[in-house]
Design a protein around this nucleic acid. Structure first.
Lengths: 351, 351
DNA sequence: AGGTACCGTGGGAGCGCTCCCACAGGTGAT
DNA sequence: ATCACCTGTGGGAGCGCTCCCACGGTACCT
């Protein structure tokens, strides 16, 4: 008859112990094989692997997590409402890059939205329960408390765009400043004289850097920088449309626009069309991200490409390193890393 | 000096035992309070809650999962490549519905793509390790082996569109047949005489049902059903464009099109424009899903709305019931449920 | 020969919970 | 007074793993 502890696992999954018995070895040895330890003889390893295959053994994640104090999962946290996540190709590109980088790992990726207060509370609980080994943070605004919370909980984290030049967290970013310069230098080289800029959300550090790049590139080309040629957007299509309309009103003589994202450029394009301006004949247009939108726009949009796949890989690499190397936070201070990856201008018909 | 078992948890998280000590009660009592058991006196409960608050206690998920044999997580499995997931609003709507339904639960939602063989293998491993308590399956094709795998592993599952009329899994669906009828009846009522249909992927049961609804509605209106007026699409924009071009070639006299999705309708719209047909003057267009695309199309698209939020809620409800009620699969056979929710036609300028 | 070193291995202890049995004390029927 | 039966509570056992100590065996030194 059934022993006390059998509970509901009728004929259930085999355990380490059973594999060990089958292979005629001890529990520890099976554990070593499962975890790829080198300290096992080839013969023993083969015997264990055979037993694993015969029994269809799969390690119990919960038991492993409890004993080893790790979860083998990391979270990709998007501090935005889901709608923005789906509307902006940047996020799905990042997701794809991260997913690809993770596919040859045992790690599981969780996608967590933290747009509303309610979602943020859930996230806080989730992190407090240490249900992930590490966190990937994308698109964080300047005053977001999330990074500090992560630091307090001592959860390894990597941020995809630093909050400022003094970002404390390990960060990976593309060269926003350089990318903006490329865009403006390109427009200058094309003979454009009056180049406007529609910014992203200025509480995002990367958007500020793009403004800096825009200014410096103009100045270095010996052009005056006119603040009336700069209008704030918010990375959205509607924001781009609005900003473009404002610019046209203020500076009807502009002949080029550098938009802080492709989606913004799409909005600007609408406003330009409505105003009867032709692209690129009357006004040249350059975007940022080189997303699918840029390729499918009419006309196809010149855009600054960020190496998103590589950013994903790099973020995962840094994060896994931090997770693996769990020294006390203090001793880790020294090797904080701020990785910046180069951008590339993709020229198309819009400029 | 540190005791043996202290390991790396320097000053770490409080445990049940510590909360119990603080509150002056036993371990079991704290567990009861945490899990909301009614068999605790009010005074004791208050004392425990105070201790929990003071210590900032958060239960260890891994320990709970190990002891109770559950994970408090369910997976939303999308057997499609990520690109399609992002391209089709249907998925993000479902995700939102499910997320909302889950937000007042302790359950964690995992989003898992299983488009490539590699991803499918990962998913299989994941499920074999029982890392989730249940699975939500969306958009499953007729010959997909996933549902059978879930049955074999005895993992509770709910499918969002049944694979056939004889679906073995609990399923939730909108009334594809009725929705298609609504669309066609609307076009008939508007006086359209030659109504074409661009189907979805015909290995998706719901797409077949829409074809059935289209045919029956025409027949019941006393109209002939002409197979040349039906062209297969695949739910994609490009598929819609192609199908529309084919239809125009075969049946230049058509005056209305019912497309199996909004995205398909968007493709059809392009083809119609290219052919110089005006919408709705020359050709009326009706889509399916009532997604954001429908609202933003030019002209705004008449579309069949599925109650996606409600579908999400219903799916979660059924799934959680199955998870909670873990009787042997055999005795559950009887109360398999196939829920079908009503659709609603949203009329806009395209028809 | 004895010593030292290392390898591969077995298995005890422990991770932090849940489950459940046992038990004290109260209540009401007999 | 006795018995039966509740309610609330404490704590042992166990979930399936990882970690680490200890041990026998072989290899190489002195």
């Amino acid at each position: 008859m059934a022993s006390h502890g059998a509970r509901g696992r009728g004929g259930g999954r085999p355990t380490l112990e059973e594999v060990a018995a089958r292979a005629g070895v001890g529990r520890g040895t099976v554990s070593r094989v499962i975890n790829g330890s080198p300290r096992v003889s080839d013969a023993t390893r083969a015997a264990v692997e055979a037993a694993v295959a015969e029994l269809g053994y799969v390690p119990n994640t919960a038991a492993r997590a409890l004993a080893a104090n790790r979860t083998d999962a990391i979270a990709l946290v998007v501090p935005e409402p889901e709608t923005r996540f789906f509307a902006e190709p940047y996020f799905s590109d990042i997701l794809r890059g991260v997913g690809a980088a993770l596919s040859d790992t045992e790690m599981q990726l969780l996608l967590i939205f933290a747009g509303s207060d309610r979602e943020r509370q859930r996230l806080a609980d989730y992190l407090a329960a240490h249900r992930v080994d590490g966190v990937l943070l994308v698109s964080v605004h300047a005053d977001d408390p999330l990074p500090d919370m992560l630091a307090r909980l001592e959860i390894p984290a990597v941020i995809s765009g630093p909050r400022s030049a003094a970002e404390a967290l390990t960060s990976v970013d593309s060269d926003n400043y350089g990318g903006a310069r490329q865009a403006v230098e390109h427009l200058v080289a094309r003979g454009r004289r009056r180049i406007a800029h529609i910014t992203g959300r200025l509480d995002v550090y990367g958007a500020q850097r793009r403004v800096d790049g825009y200014r410096d590139a103009l100045r270095d080309a010996g052009r005056p920088v006119d603040d009336l040629m700069i209008e704030a957007g918010d990375f959205s299509e509607e924001g781009g449309r609005r900003a473009m309309a404002a610019l046209l009103e203020r500076r009807p003589d502009l002949d080029a626009v550098f938009a802080a994202s492709d989606v913004t450029a799409a909005g600007a394009r609408h406003a330009l069309r409505e105003a009867g301006r032709r692209i690129p004949e009357d006004v040249a247009l350059v975007g940022y991200d080189d997303s699918a939108i840029a390729r499918h726009m009419d006309p196809p949009l010149t855009s600054v490409r960020q190496p998103i796949q590589e950013m994903g890989r790099t973020m995962i690499g840094l994060l896994l390193a931090e997770v693996a190397d769990r020294r006390p936070a203090a001793s880790r201070e020294l090797d904080r890393r701020q990785v910046v990856l180069a951008t590339e201008l993709v020229e198309r018909a819009s400029s």
